[in-house]
Amino acid sequence: MHSNSYTLLYAAAISVVTAIILAVTSEGLKPLQEANVALDTKKNILRSVRIASEDRATIEQTYNANVQELVVNSAGEVLSDVSAKSIRLKDQVNKAPEARQMPLYVYTGEAGKKYYVVPVYGVGLWGPIWGYLALEDDFNTVYGSFFDHKGETPGLGAEIAEKPFQEQFQGKKIMSDQDKFVSVRVVKKADKFTLGDEHRVDGISGGTITSRGVDAMLRNCIEPYLSYFETVKSSTGAVMPESK
């Protein structure tokens, strides 16, 4: 039988030793892990503009060459002193729209056509869900989307991270005929739905709460960008030619 002091000392010693080992491991691997997360973000943004690549170099190159990162506020101003990388979306989406600093990714495709990628963040059933919605330069038509989740149920809520669900968004409209923001709604087949088909996406059977989460997330996160979109539209004269 060991004495009390031995037991206490032993516990303390083993805690200190393991703590040191873990601290060293964590610190040593941090740069690699952060690089992975940054790359993953870039990959997902590119996916929303329908560019799928797994190759590290291709992703970096395409992203750096074509994507411009902006931060805007709900008044439509560009906040040039804030970096999009420094913003944690999680903290922003719960603030009142007026107080938010919102990252926006502008992808310039072939022939100079621009796509505006809006990051979205919300809650699913078991945890956070997030994604990117790419709008065409009419600020109305959805070009593509990407969603991911922390721990939704595989086969049910987790389907939002799969292509069939995400591809439904392509070509949908976020503005009504009266130019009002209505978002793209994720609804069940049986739900009453008065807006046209261009505003609806089928929810996932068995993943109702996650589907509603996506629905709420889109509405919450896209609307504050509208005034910025208006600014861009009016400055470019509603027609395309920008720069040059």
């Binding site: 060991h2 037991t7 032993y10 516990a11 083993i14 393991t18 080992i21 873990l22 491991t25 691997l29």
Partner: peptide
């Protein structure tokens, strides 16, 4: 290993290894 805290000690060892795997 003191017998009275052996489960805790085992847990610390396991948790350390698992965290290393996770980080790697």
């Amino acid at each position: 290993i003191p017998n009275r805290v052996r489960i805790i000690v085992q847990l610390i060892i396991v948790a350390t290894l698992v965290t290393i795997v996770d980080q790697v």
